[in-house]
Amino acid sequence: MSKSRIFGLILILLGGFIILNNAGVVDIGIGEIISTYWPLILIVAGIYNLLTNPAGRLGGFIVLLIGLFFQLNNLDYIAAAEYISFWPVIFILIGVSLLFDKSNGKEIDREKLNVFNIFSGGDYRIISNNFKGGSSISIFGGADIDLTGADISIDEARLDVFTLFGGADIYVPEDWQVVVKGLPIFGGWDNLTRHNQDIDNSKILSVSCLTIFGGVDIKNKK
């Protein structure tokens, strides 16, 4: 059974338990359990991304830290209001974003793409003849990545995409083969590329996604 079907089955069972609990058919205290342990979803997602997306570990690390913070707060190991406030976190994340590619709207002739968008969006046009992949992180923001001017000279290029309350649109040449995998949590992805007989199987773009309340679309330009 695929990971998405397993996750879907878990959600169905969880929803069924909640309905039975609300109707008074069973008393399993599911509301208290969810309110206390919901950050475990973020913790598991962060660990999953760290283990499966070597090029996109920053996204998994951020999600893991957020999950740990809220879980410790819910278990009363820390008092969030006493140790952290919202605005310093924003400053730190914006500072981190400045360390990544900021070639918004410009052509990028590099083998690796590493972009970080928070509370903003970015447009990136890649023209490298030896594109090898990279990572894209969007938190409350989005990224438009245009790869139609790029070429793959190796067997496979790997692009790791992380979205948290954000999204990403990725445009690829029509002769590329696109393989998408990953973990959706209240989000998802769509491979909308056109399949034709002219696809060069030696040009493979492997897209690994972690989407949390977000989405990723991979498509060809019209």
Rank of each mutant, 00 (worst) to 15 (best):
F17Y: 06
I18V: 14
L20R: 00
N21R: 04
N22R: 15
N22Q: 15
V25C: 07
V26S: 01
I28N: 06
I28F: 12
G29L: 08
G29M: 06
G29S: 07
I30T: 02
G31Q: 07
E32M: 03
I33T: 10
I33S: 08
T36R: 03
W38T: 06
W38Y: 13
P39R: 09
I41E: 10
L42H: 02
L42C: 03
L42A: 06
I43C: 09
V44D: 05
V44M: 09
A45P: 09
G46E: 07
G46D: 04
L51S: 08
G56A: 00
G56M: 00
G56T: 01
G59N: 06
G59C: 05
I62M: 03
I62D: 01
V63W: 03
L64F: 11
I66F: 12
G67F: 03
G67D: 01
F69D: 09
F69S: 12
F70H: 05
L72N: 00
D76E: 15
A79R: 15
A80S: 10
A81S: 14
E82T: 09
E82N: 06
Y83D: 10
Y83H: 14
Y83A: 10
W87Q: 15
V89Y: 11
F91M: 04
F91H: 03
I92R: 05
L93D: 01
I94N: 12
I94Y: 11
V96H: 01
V96T: 02
S97N: 14
S97E: 14
L98R: 14
L99S: 10
L99M: 12
L99H: 08
F100S: 10
K102C: 15
S103Q: 11
N104R: 02
G105K: 08
K106N: 09
K106C: 06
I108W: 06
I108L: 13
E111F: 02
N114H: 12
N114E: 13
V115N: 00
V115E: 00
V115P: 00
